[in-house]
Amino acid sequence: MASGVKPRVKVPKSVAAGEAITIKTLISHAMESGQRKDKEGNVIPRSIINRFTCEFNGQSVIDITMEPAISTNPYFQFDATVPEAGEFVFTWYDDDGSVYNDNKSITIA
């Protein structure tokens, strides 16, 4: 498990049913690209988050395949439709097998 990995997500607290909201997500992760070399000249192996998903009440909002060109501390902004009250589940999948999660609830105004 990579150390110091922490998600940070912005989801509005409530919205009118059926309306769209903007979601901003960030996670602190080095996203080691596999292109860098250490002081001895050995390649530092790739170790990135390779996939990010956002689901709402079990339905997919977005599913992103990520490659080493995504910057350190990966950031995504996207819009979601909110048909009813419920929970957003955000999941990040690490090359090393770790899975990071964050949840945000939203109510209907």
Binding site: K6, V9, K24, L26, I27, Y75
Partner: peptide
């Protein structure tokens, strides 16, 4: 301009 765009804020959380 927004604390959710600013990548530094995740370190403030930490």
């Amino acid at each position: 301009m927004d604390d959710f765009d600013n990548p530094a804020m995740v370190f403030v959380d930490q």
